[in-house]
Design a protein around this nucleic acid. Structure first.
Length: 489
RNA sequence: GGCCCUAUCGUCUAGCGGUCCAGGACACAGCCCUCUCAAGGCUGGGACGGGGGUUCGAGUCCCCCUAGGGUCACCA
């Protein structure tokens, strides 16, 4: 292949404006193919369907792809020799191409009404025939002045065979191919016309897209032939699946990149995960960054089996990156989805992070885990505070002794030293250390599960710890006689 | 339903005729570590969909069946 072998992915903003993970998947592999073969990666925006397109869609998709670190060489905002990149700005091209097709007889105008078409298809279904255009307007001459569409005149017999880059030759009989509408009555092209015209105009030689396009590839090839253009090489990527193996869908899986972005996933993890779908490094390496992926990528190694998008594995991988990434990067991402992190003092955040990071699968879990570090502290309940088989007076007495240890000095807390002293306290009171630590954990954090207690206390500082312990002692009441317990609670 | 694609543990995958009584990862279970929870370490259960071929030899090649998916629009 030449140095300048363009590879293209067409981005179709969805009606809701949600950038789809499938788009990121295709984009990632397009980047990789470009890397492998040389050339350019062109991003085009399909915005011709005015009723569905929303202005936000393009911004959203480009924002999220950028978040993932995926980059194209040519496209809106980036520019390049093939501009413009929005379908809505290339309508002349499609109209001219379409006219030439009609002139050469490869396509024809059709003014069949929706009603007639519906009726016809209903009839065909009833007769157990495959619904398809009956060719009513094929030999008629429909005036260009009336409302009409333009259809591709697909040969009535024969077949089209093409070689997919990832599998054996695929042959589809023309009897299976409908007379596709190329130009809609509103004057905008359908995907089929636009993609062929654009790809040719932009010099695209390799097309990497999802498997769902396989059945319409003959239409595209027929178009290339009608125009007399050189065919591109197709690669049809496997479809991402839900757990039930159906094509990944919003109902059964989060599909919006924005969702992953907002719900505490790291772009590094998502890219890594996507790189594992239908592809592997060849050895047992599962963790890799974009650069490594691009370096190792080989189109011949792509699998054609549709991989199930396993959120659990993504979460594990996300945890791996939360632990692996340097503090600055992590904090930057953390601030995107954690209100607490956004508001807190960077220095405090930096101290808390080592204690919290290995306990998170998603960045959004930060707030729950680290909440107790921050001001809005509420004392724990009476029941939580008292260990099994201990009494309130007993517990209060122990906490009082613990408080003394904490209050003994003004120095910064040394976690190890504090732990040792508190062990001694437990022993003195005839408690197991774990019982004391448990009660103290509740007193200081108001949580059952927390990061390491003594390190946490060191960050909170003595005054804050003392205040919280006092609050818990209050919750337990003011016992006259310490130590001796009667019954459990 | 027609056509097309696909088929290794529950999931992601390694395997490109012998080195596979099938390897790794997630998940799951147990143990260790341990102030809780994680992280980490160790151990365990768990797969070549079925049937025919080809071959000295098949998870690997061929055929059939079965199963799953996709596609049959003036959506992409």
């Amino acid at each position: 292949m030449s140095e300048n072998t363009p590879v293209v992915v067409r981005i179709a903003p969805s009606p809701t404006g949600d950038p789809h993970v499938g788009t990121a998947y295709t984009c990632l592999f397009n980047m990789a193919l470009r890397q492998q073969r040389g050339g350019r990666f062109i991003l085009r925006i399909d915005d011709t369907d005015q009723t569905r397109y929303q202005a936000d869609s393009e911004a959203a998709i480009t924002r999220e792809l950028a978040w993932l670190g995926l980059a194209w060489d040519e496209g809106p905002d980036v520019g390049g020799p093939s501009a413009p990149y929005r379908q809505s700005e290339r309508t002349d091209l499609y109209r001219d191409a379409c006219e030439s097709l009609v002139a050469s007889g490869a396509a024809y105008r059709c003014d069949c009404t929706k009603e007639r078409l519906d009726e016809m298809r209903a009839e065909q279904r009833k007769n157990k025939q495959q619904p398809r255009y009956d060719g009513h307007c094929r030999e008629r001459s429909v005036s260009a002045d009336t409302a009409h569409v333009v259809r591709l005149k697909v040969p009535t017999d024969g077949e089209t065979t093409f070689k997919d880059g990832l599998r054996d030759a695929i042959t589809i009989k023309h009897a299976q191919v409908d007379d596709q509408v190329l130009m809609k009555s509103d004057g905008f092209p359908t995907y089929h016309l636009a993609t062929v015209v654009d790809d040719n105009a932009m010099g695209v030689t390799h097309i990497l897209r999802a498997e769902e396009w396989i059945n319409s590839t003959p239409k595209h090839i027929l178009l290339y032939q009608a125009f007399g253009w050189e065919l591109p090489q197709y690669y049809h990527l496997p479809l991402l699946r839900n757990a039930d193996k159906s094509k990944i869908s919003k109902r059964k899986n989060p599909t919006s990149i924005t969702w992953y972005h907002e719900n505490g996933f790291l772009p590094e993890a998502l890219v890594n995960f996507l790189g594992l779908m239908g592809f592997s490094m060849g050895d047992d390496q599962e963790e890799f960054d974009l650069a490594e992926f691009l370096a190792v990528f080989d189109a011949d190694r792509i699998k054609t089996t549709g991989p199930v998008f396993d959120l659990q594995k993504l979460e594990w991988l996300n945890g791996v990156y939360i632990r692996k990434l340097d503090a600055d990067t992590l904090i930057a991402h953390l601030k995107e989805c954690s209100p607490l992190a956004r508001e807190s003092d960077p220095e405090v955040l930096r101290r808390i992070l080592p204690l919290v990071r290995e306990r998170m699968k998603r960045l959004t879990e930060f707030d729950d885990i680290a909440r107790f570090f921050f001001a809005d502290f509420a004392a724990p309940s009476y029941d939580d505070l008292i260990p099994k088989k201990r009494t309130d007076t007993n517990t209060a007495a122990m906490l009082r002794m613990a408080r003394q240890v904490v209050a003994k000095s003004d120095n910064a807390i040394d976690p190890d030293a504090l732990q040792q002293e508190l062990r001694d306290v437990a022993t003195t009171g005839d408690w197991k250390p774990r019982e004391l630590f448990g009660a103290l954990r509740w007193a200081v954090t108001a949580q059952k599960v927390t990061p390491p207690l003594f390190e946490s206390m060191a960050i909170l500082g003595r005054p804050e710890c003392i205040e919280r312990i006092d609050a818990s002692i209050d919750v337990l009441g003011s016992p006259e006689n310490p130590i001796l317990g009667t019954t459990g609670h």
